Simulated assay, not measured.
Amino acid sequence: MTSISASEGCEKGLAPGHFAPETAYLDTASAGLPPAEAVTAITSALTAASRGTATVGGYFEAAADARARFARLVGVAPGRVAISASAAVHTGLIAQSLPAGSEVLVADGDFASLVNPFHVRPDLRVRTVPLERLADGVRPGTALVAVSAVQSADGRLADLDRIAAAARAHGARTLVDASQSAGWLPLDAGAYDFTLVVGYKWLLAPKGTSFLVVPEDLGGLTPVFAGWVAGEDPWGSCYGQVTRLADCARRFDETPAFFSYVGARHSLALVEELGVERIGRHDVALADRFRAGLADLGRTPVPAPGSAIVAVPGLGTAAGRLAAAGVRVSSRAGGLRAAFHLYNTAADVDRLLEVIAGT
């Protein structure tokens, strides 16, 4: 992979020809910007659909390509990846597969789509501890540890190595939600039992794309959502009972959101081309520039070293004023949340700091 310094690309972004934001868009933690190639592909697909010239086979080809590209990004075989439209569907699949009475360990304040599917099953025991004590909180009888690799609200990084080691030591499985990290933070999905990622944030895909990595033995999951696409021969499984489910993770697929996956293959191709490590260095350099600027303003962000997400407590109400000034951030848990990605530049950071200084 081509090496890159921490500052390289910060003036123009890593892929200036692929994006044309009209604001200082610093809200990838809410939704990423799709690249031009994805927009063109979706527009063409919609035009073909409106003219009656589209083929369903083409949509499934796009979904298969997106699955394969995602698998390469996270270091697993495509046969271990199921596709869906949301993180909650994937988590719900795992939640519904746990035996009654199972204990699930989660972190305080983690994202609802990750934790709530366990809470809605009254016969599961959900235990919550602070993120920094998650590894220490695993105990005999814990069945599953579910955690976001990077916290949505404030950008804190989970110590996944310690958590995974503690889970293994107690015979528990791990579920890692990498939705706020995949695309800028290198990920070895094979190090965990289950890994889920929504595509519409740092992977730059349209909403309606989601990926779940399962173990090679399929993790004992019950395919509770299985429809015809889950069949080993989907086109031979359209009517009546599906007599043979796919032998791989495809048995857990939902029918893909056609146009979303048409775009996703191009978004993932760009992330592949640039490289996650390269993108991560760019993103974190910008986040560190923002942290340094905040210090100069006497502001203290939530400690999250190495993160591309920066949260500033007490500044959440400034999001509206920033939007009026052409700077897009978000307000989460009372704080201002800024998220830096490959299309952002040093000028975006400086504009954000300038507006904050005037509030």
Results as ranks from 00 to 15, higher is better:
305 P>K: 00
305 P>I: 01
305 P>M: 01
306 G>S: 03
306 G>C: 03
306 G>K: 02
306 G>D: 03
306 G>N: 02
307 S>V: 01
307 S>Q: 01
307 S>N: 01
309 I>A: 00
309 I>H: 03
309 I>V: 08
309 I>L: 06
310 V>Y: 06
310 V>E: 02
311 A>D: 13
311 A>R: 09
312 V>S: 07
313 P>D: 06
314 G>W: 10
314 G>K: 13
314 G>V: 15
315 L>V: 12
315 L>C: 15
316 G>F: 15
316 G>L: 14
316 G>K: 14
317 T>L: 13
317 T>V: 15
317 T>K: 15
317 T>E: 14
317 T>G: 15
317 T>I: 13
318 A>N: 06
318 A>K: 07
318 A>S: 15
318 A>W: 08
318 A>R: 12
319 A>Q: 15
319 A>D: 12
320 G>V: 10
320 G>E: 12
320 G>S: 13
321 R>C: 05
322 L>Q: 13
323 A>F: 06
323 A>Q: 08
323 A>H: 12
324 A>Q: 07
324 A>E: 09
324 A>R: 06
324 A>S: 09
324 A>Y: 04
325 A>V: 01
325 A>H: 10
325 A>D: 14
326 G>P: 04
326 G>M: 06
326 G>N: 07
328 R>A: 13
328 R>I: 14
328 R>N: 14
330 S>N: 13
331 S>L: 05
331 S>K: 10
332 R>D: 03
332 R>E: 09
332 R>H: 11
333 A>W: 03
333 A>Y: 01
334 G>P: 08
334 G>E: 09
334 G>W: 14
334 G>V: 14
334 G>Q: 13
335 G>P: 05
335 G>H: 09
335 G>E: 10
337 R>Y: 09
337 R>D: 02
338 A>N: 10
338 A>D: 08
338 A>E: 08
338 A>K: 10
339 A>F: 02
339 A>V: 01
339 A>M: 02
339 A>K: 00
340 F>M: 09
340 F>E: 06
340 F>V: 04
341 H>Q: 09
341 H>G: 02
341 H>I: 01
342 L>S: 07
342 L>C: 06
343 Y>R: 11
343 Y>H: 15
343 Y>G: 03
343 Y>F: 12
343 Y>D: 10
344 N>V: 09
344 N>W: 05
345 T>L: 01
345 T>E: 03
346 A>V: 10
346 A>W: 05
346 A>Y: 06
347 A>F: 06
347 A>G: 11
347 A>H: 11
347 A>E: 05
348 D>K: 05
348 D>V: 04
349 V>S: 05
349 V>E: 03
349 V>F: 05
350 D>T: 12
350 D>A: 11
350 D>W: 09
350 D>H: 12
351 R>K: 10
351 R>Q: 07
351 R>C: 02
351 R>G: 03
352 L>R: 08
352 L>D: 07
352 L>S: 11
352 L>C: 15
353 L>H: 07
353 L>M: 12
353 L>Q: 05
354 E>H: 13
354 E>A: 14
354 E>S: 14
354 E>W: 01
355 V>P: 02
355 V>W: 00
355 V>E: 03
355 V>N: 02
355 V>I: 11
356 I>R: 10
356 I>T: 13
356 I>P: 11
357 A>T: 04
357 A>M: 07
358 G>F: 00
358 G>K: 08
358 G>R: 13
358 G>E: 14
